[in-house]
Amino acid sequence: MSTIGTGYDLSASQFSPDGRVFQIDYASKAVEKSGTVIGIRGKDCVILAVEKIITSKLYEPDAAGRIFIVEKNIGMAVAGLVADGNYVADIARQEAANYRQQFEQVIPLKHLCDRVSAYVHAYTLYSAVRPFGLSIILASWDENDGPQLYKIEPSGSYFGYFACASGKAKQQAKTEMEKSRFVDLNTEELVKKAGEIIYRVHDELKDKEFRFEMGIVGSETQGIYQINPAVLTELARKAGENANKEDDSGDEAN
């Protein structure tokens, strides 16, 4: 990034001499400052989980949530600017509604992802707008296609994943994820894993308090997307706290 500050990094519609669009890279920086978000795809369900960093005691627990419902069976989680996240969630809902109006069925996740990513991409083309400071993870489950998981970057590119992470502890989360084979896990196991990963990658030194939040859809939720379902969320939190305890005692033994 040697060309930072040389004037080629002030507009999304401008390339730097070495072929970068710096404004997109900078938008990604906003994502990297955000609390961690993960998406994992199990045997018969898919989970999005968020490390929601609590910046004030005065907020209600549900304030500034980063998981959204887009369709009956489609959920979305974001890392980055919450305001941008809310906005794109609305766009995604409109896409889903549009598709439903035309075809009277739920939008296939790949199709939704295609549309939303095109929207995000459009904001990387003009000097009149800025790219979204967002990494967007989309998840769905249905009878025919099973669990599905996609992630859209601020650049507008997207990929399908078995498991993915964004935000502060993206790297640690990826390392954690590579230890497991999620496709073999049932709902309960996957929920626990989600809790363990988020609790493990949370950095207590940097951010004291956080709230674990999750969204889940799968055969056990009858294909209905649910945010923070009481029983499963508690299961994940317990698993997470236990994992942290084990890690601590393990450190002492060493």
């Binding site: 959204f68 419902i69 009956k72 439903r100 109006q101």
Partner: peptide, 15 residues
């Protein structure tokens, strides 16, 4: 009915 159903989905989305 289609329009109303969409409203119900919106209700769900707001969670």
């Amino acid at each position: 009915k289609r329009t109303i159903d969409q409203k119900m989905i919106e209700d769900q989305c707001y969670a």
